[in-house]
Simulated scan of single mutants.
Amino acid sequence: MTPPRLHGVREAWLGGAVLAALALATALFDPTRPGRFPACPFRAVTGWDCPGCGSLRALHELTHGQVAAAMDYNALLVAFLPFGAVIWLRAVTRRSRPRVLPAWAARALAVGVVLWAVIRNLPLFGGVLAS
C-alpha cells in the first residue's frame, strides 16, 4: 500500500504531465481551426459559452506567448494558472499536504465559476469575453 503522502505527489506529477501534453497539443495544433478538437457540448446545446469555453484557444495563445489574446479567450483560465502552478509546486515538493477545500471555499469557487459563466455571456461583455 502506498503512503498517502506519496500518492498525492504521484497524482500531482500525473496531473502536470496531462496538462503539459495538452499544452503541447494546443501549441502544435491550432484549436481555432475546425475539426482539430471536439466542440463544447454545452455551447452546442445552449449557444452560450460555458466557464471553460475558450480554454484550448487560451492555452494555445499562452504557449505562443500571447497573454492578452489568451485573456480574450478565457480570462478565468489565465487568472487561475499562476495559482494552480503554486499549488502544484507545493504538492510535488511536499511543502504542503493535499487538502480538501473547506466548505466555504468550495462554495465561493462554485459561485465564482457560475458568475463567470453568466458575466461572459452578457451582451455588454460579448466583444471582450466571448470566445
Rank of each mutant, 00 (worst) to 15 (best):
L81M: 10
P51K: 11
P38Y: 00
R120Q: 00
L129T: 15
L81D: 05
V118D: 07
T46F: 15
V111G: 06
V67K: 06
R5A: 13
L115N: 06
R97A: 13
D30C: 03
P82E: 01
C53S: 09
V67Y: 08
C40K: 00
L14T: 01
C53E: 00
A79R: 04
V113C: 11
A110N: 09
Y73E: 06
Q66K: 05
R107I: 10
A105P: 06
L28T: 10
S131T: 10
A85G: 06
P123N: 00
P123S: 07
A108K: 08
T2S: 04
L28V: 05
F83G: 15
T93V: 02
P34K: 13
L124K: 11
A20M: 07
H60Y: 10
G54L: 14
L124E: 07
A27Y: 07
H7D: 03
P51H: 07
F125L: 04
F42A: 03
L22A: 15
R107W: 11
G16I: 02
A58G: 05
F80W: 10
P82F: 01
T32F: 12
T2N: 04
A70S: 09
P98L: 08
V92H: 15
T32N: 07
V114D: 01
A106V: 01
I119C: 02
V9I: 02
N121S: 12
A106R: 11
R90C: 08
A106P: 00
L76G: 09
A103W: 01
C40S: 11
H60E: 09
V114W: 05
A25V: 00
H64N: 05
V128Q: 10
R94E: 08
P41F: 14
W48C: 04
P98K: 05
L77I: 14
G52Q: 06
C40Q: 08
R94Y: 02
R33V: 03
A130T: 06
V92E: 14
F29R: 07
